[in-house]
Amino acid sequence: MPEAATAVKTVELKILRYRPASDERPAFGSFKVPYTEDMSVLEALQTIKDTLDGTLSFRWSCRMAVCGSCGMMINGKPQLACNTLLRNLPPGPVTIEPLNNFPIERDLVVSVGDFVKKIESIYPYIIPKEPKTVAEGPYLQTPAQLAAYESFSDCINCMLCYAACPQFGENPNFIGPGAMALLQRYNGDSRDGGQQKRLDTIHGEDGVWSCTAVGYCSEVCPKQVDPANAVNQNKTNSAFDFFLRFLRPGGAR
């Protein structure tokens, strides 16, 4: 890059820092980095880490909105740092904070343990209706059957929807939008027979019923998974299950 003789354009980033060994509470630190037209927020953070402060901590991996590692609050909105270009942000300093509603581990790194437990709790794998041997061949699926769940399989577990969800902010036990999208990915799969098992994990107040249909989760989703739709479909399913359980043998729980 040719060095301009005139003043280099810079951008200021105000980053919420927290180093558990030395800081009593999180506080903002300010950094100025050289600005280019094609710079993402992630690149700006990497520039800071490489040239200004090597202690700045943040998660990242793929740089192309596939891995879901670099979710953070950018100007107060949950976004992927790699997917957010500085030129698309309003002029002036850019505020960067760790994802809302999660405990901070260090700087922009949040604790994801509870989220992973939620993902595990909804049986995130296909439970075949009837087991088949290899000799019996694969489980076939029509394009229409694939379309029924395909969009929900696009989730990259970036947790932006959890940072957007006011109900998850109120009640960290709420199963939340992302896990509900994953649940619908399997419940909507024609090869799967685990629907009832999964419905049983979400029929409580901390399950699907904590949602108040705010819809911000779907708005911030970088992969257009529409978790709010998954939640809504499962409100319907869970509501029918509320009454249909009386018709199942031994199902009135």
């Binding site: 595990e120 709790s121 049983d200 994990t201 029929h203 409580g204 107040e205 901390d206 399950g207 019923w209 869970s238 509501a239 509320f242 009454f243 729980r253």
Partner: peptide, 10 residues
């Protein structure tokens, strides 16, 4: 995972 009590929200 402990199954949660069913909600009457429906």
């Amino acid at each position: 995972f402990v199954q949660e009590k069913r909600s009457i929200s429906p």
